[in-house]
Design a protein around this nucleic acid. Structure first.
Lengths: 273, 273
DNA sequence: TATTAATTGCGACCGGTGTTCGCAGTTTAG
DNA sequence: CTAAACTGCGAACACCGGTCGCAATTAATA
């Protein structure tokens, strides 16, 4: 009995027979995003949305199969805020970094984004557009499709990570946060964790705080540069030997060789979240 | 008015006066982890834990200030499952990659880990041990402490990402998942997203599936190599091989400083064996 | 030893959540 | 004009996390 579609994206917004709806999915979405922006994701409850919309909560289920659908809609809506009309420069890394920067801006505007339960594959129309753009940026890269997908996923994960750090840095510290930090420093001062103690002591009182934007772009560029290089050209040798344990800086880049076996397992991506 | 500590870690497990407790935090934690392993994080409710423990749900609040505490305990317990007795090899990148691999194993064993609400700084005793180990691995790296912390955080994020992808690949696809994939392929076939279509078409039916472990380690090594190289040396000795299309412009900067964001290094378990 | 204070176990409850059901009212198709 | 399809929604269900107050128990104190 041809059960109806599972995702919002394939389910028709409304039937053609009955009385015309008083609202639309876009309305729900707008209200939900607004609520989330104001009071966090937990403020987005069916009752609240209904109240804000001036309707009964049961009515919402005429537009949406459940709260999950609402989250899908919200996610895709904010994904649509990323400007995809920026022309590509031609350098995959640079283009992706720029894209990531714009994505991060959206994260900063909607801090609840990382709080959305990480369903595998939450991809609406705008999300697909985003994915298309990212893949287009990598058009010149010689990598199997799934590998590119995975790069996009990793990129998104990093964007979320950076956004979180930035938000946390700007927002006032909560009690819990302070308590956690206190516990950490106390533990460090116990003597059993010299490296942690050193790393924390190294932090001068006032934070010189390099421009977050620069830091972000630099890190992003490095990571992406490491990922985007295709395997054929990056052929090298496995590192075998062991350098001295405390050489000045023991980090040498040892590009590892690996058969350029294309295709990889399933790709868990969630480009925009 | 000296209100009692905010985190579980500084709050005493029990008073010294009253009747002796029937259970312990370790009991709660074990039960909670078990429940989560079996039915996901949503299965960990106060009532369920209480029932599983054969006690009233209100009793739990004698051991724990709320559900958040329970999540803290679970996270740290699982972090304690990672083996930190593995001797360091001396090469920061290699050591971190190995650590990440062990962390990923724990993620695979406890798929609910990424579902835990991303509080800033969820770090218990075992988490601190983990952090210490990671910093020790980077002892020879000349980077400011906060930068190293950030590297650890990024590493954890990537581990989570990879673990998620791997889990999704192995686990049976849910209805929602299938529907999502169907929507994606349908959208791609519409013609408006040629790159998405190409990337998907490239994926042959049966997946040769490169060994996930190798893929993980390779990617991890690349990313970490890009991050761990300190700026001083990186300015002079650019990447030996920068083949693909991208200007290998050296990102040189002054010593950087930035607020740290050590996120949870949630990982690792080895119950038996 | 007797007293007192601290602590535990927990039934009952509160306000909140997502979701379902059934029905009255409305619109369109045939 | 009838009938089918659809919308709005009050009421209810089954959960959830968390609090309160009290009896029972234990340990420190006098």
């Amino acid at each position: 009995m041809a059960q109806e579609p599972v995702t919002v994206w394939t389910r028709a917004e409304r039937g053609a027979r009955g009385r015309l709806p008083a609202h639309s999915r876009a309305d729900l979405t707008a209200v939900a995003v607004e609520l989330a922006d104001r009071g966090g994701l937990s403020a987005v409850s069916m009752r609240q949305v209904a109240k804000e919309l001036g309707t009964g909560q049961a009515s919402l289920y005429r537009y949406v199969s459940g709260r999950d659908d609402l989250l899908d809609l919200m996610t895709d809506a904010v994904a649509g805020e990323i400007d995809l009309d920026v022309p590509l420069h031609g350098d995959p890394v640079a283009d992706l970094v720029a894209l990531a920067a714009r994505a991060k801006a959206v994260h900063l505007r909607h801090p609840w984004l990382p709080d959305i339960p990480p369903e595998p594959l939450r991809l609406g129309p705008r999300g697909v557009d985003y994915l298309e753009y990212a893949l287009r940026a990598m058009a010149s890269v010689r990598l199997p499709g799934p590998a590119k997908m995975e790069i996009v996923a990793l990129m998104s994960a990093l964007v979320a990570q950076f956004a979180r750090a930035e938000i946390q840095g700007s927002r006032a510290t909560t009690d819990r946060q302070a308590a956690q930090a206190a516990y950490l420093s106390q533990t460090a001062s116990q003597g059993d964790h010299p490296h942690v103690a050193a790393a924390m002591a190294e932090h001068p009182g006032t934070a010189p705080a390099e421009d977050p934007q620069r830091l972000f772009e630099r890190t992003m560029r490095r990571v992406l540069t490491g990922l985007v290089v295709d395997d054929i050209t990056a052929a090298g040798v496995e590192d075998v030997e062991t350098p001295a344990a405390h050489d000045a800086q023991g980090t040498r880049d040892a590009p590892e060789a690996h058969e350029a076996d294309p295709r990889d397992p399933t790709v868990g991506k969630r480009p925009e979240q």
